[in-house]
């Protein structure tokens, strides 16, 4: 199958199999920041933005992507770098495999939460699993990054 969509601001014609999900398509097209961790929509590693909102690319059918805007971390280099500096300053990226999807969620959260608190941040990020860090270092980084009181 074939359709036209926008990835990171560029219009592109995607070739894909009928049952294919977006995570697989994106990796095939070279967006290697997109990781997959679970096959069941449970881990958050594959988070990308669909029309500006964070979604699981493993649960989003590629066939539905006609005329949508998909954003991966490759398009957010400056912002991602800024947050990355906070995260690595805490050592909280660890193995790093969950970090791009986590960062996509954090950057979306920054746009969405007007008055972030530790509680609302934790709730927003609950779908991003991490087995290395124990989450606390991630929160220390976010509190500094977002200037939470």
């Amino acid at each position: 199958m074939q359709l036209e969509t926008t990835i990171n601001g560029n219009k592109i014609v995607l070739d894909f199999a009928g049952g294919e999900f977006l995570a697989e398509t994106l990796r095939r097209y070279g967006y290697l920041s997109v990781k997959e961790g679970c096959d069941t929509g449970s881990c958050g590693l594959c988070t990308v933005w669909l029309d500006g909102a964070p979604v699981l690319s493993c649960t989003t059918l590629t066939a539905r992507m006609e005329d949508h805007e998909i954003t991966t971390i490759e398009a957010l280099n400056v912002e991602a770098e800024e947050f990355a500096q906070f995260l690595v300053a805490e050592g909280a990226e660890q193995c790093g495999f969950c970090a791009p999807g986590f960062t996509m969620t954090v950057l979306a959260m920054r746009r969405e939460l007007k008055h972030p608190t530790v509680e609302s941040i934790n709730h927003y990020l609950a779908g991003n699993l991490c087995r290395c860090s124990g989450y606390k270092g991630q929160m220390r980084a976010i509190v500094k990054y977002m200037g939470v009181e």
Partner: peptide
């Protein structure tokens, strides 16, 4: 408190893992 030398690249999704 030294940051990891590969940290920023991994966070930004630079290709680095087996797949």
């Amino acid at each position: 408190r030294i940051p990891k030398i590969d940290g920023v690249g991994l966070v930004k999704g630079v290709p680095a893992y087996t797949s």
